[in-house]
Simulated scan of single mutants.
Amino acid sequence: MSEDHGLEEDDSGAVMRAVGRQIKLWREAAGLKQAELGAAIGYGEELVSAVERARRIPRPEFLDNADKVLGAGGKIAAMKKDVAEARYPKKVRDVKKLEAEAVELGSYNNSVIDGLLQTEEYARAVFGDRRPAFTEDELERRVAARMARQEIIDATTARPLFNFVQCESTLRRPLGGRMVLRRQLERLLEIGQLRNVDLQVLPLNREENAGVDGSFRLLRLKEGATVGLNEIQLISSLIAEPKAAQILDIRYGAIRAQALTPRESLAFIEKVLGET
């Protein structure tokens, strides 16, 4: 059960300290030692101690089981939502919050498949290639965070609107191996069928490419503002200044015009899948 993740030093620390204190109080009120609680819920004494000291983030089943064993009447289990938010890096939580406020999201990517479209295997390969390498706990944490962000693409709500432009190179780069790539391409074909998703491919043989400066994202927010997100190597930035965001907006419009239409793009992805 050692897969519970570590914790970054940000505002999530306060959440986890409060959770740890509550678990300790309930445990002591029940007259149990850390080892006894751990044995009762299927975890080791070391992990129980780490959770109480806010050094580890407990999984939902840890909280559910502790709630039952300690007779907390749902008070410990009720903290699962707060813990789930604290589980992910602050940068991810900030992006997820922005995405939740958007009515339209656009993305151009010429390095990897957009994070909102990635399969778990593909995401694991992307993070696994990072140098210096992530620890196993950090790798699992980041993969989980990426998968959680994908909840925004909900076929039942048909909103917000999504547009993804993927450079052809990302469809052919076999990160994680050919089978991982095949499943990723199949995933793209599935998402491309959703009514609120336009998926486009920018072929490598295009003589014009307004995206040569690299990948970026655009979010149109509910109040009408447009912001950009830019991640290059060790730098991650939010582009909120209106003139700069407008430049990205114009650039993204050009990229979409240069790319294949959504219908042509799905046929193109099927062709690449057949060649993989």
Results as ranks from 00 to 15, higher is better:
A100R: 08
K75Y: 02
G128N: 02
D82K: 15
G128H: 05
K68F: 14
R173H: 11
R159T: 12
D154A: 04
I247T: 09
E151F: 02
R142T: 00
R21S: 13
D82G: 12
P60Y: 02
V272E: 04
V227T: 01
A18F: 04
D137N: 06
T135I: 00
E241H: 09
K75M: 10
F134I: 00
V143G: 06
A123E: 01
A254S: 05
S111A: 13
M147Y: 00
R187K: 14
L7I: 13
A133I: 06
D94E: 14
A225E: 14
G71Q: 04
R141A: 02
N163A: 11
A225R: 15
A257I: 02
E120V: 03
V83L: 15
F134P: 00
I23K: 02
V143L: 06
K33E: 14
R27L: 11
V197A: 10
E207W: 15
K243N: 08
P58H: 13
K80F: 00
K243L: 04
F216T: 09
A72P: 08
G71D: 01
A257R: 06
Q34S: 13
I23G: 00
T156C: 05
V272M: 03
L47E: 13
M179G: 12
V126Y: 01
V197P: 15
E168S: 10
I153V: 11
A244E: 13
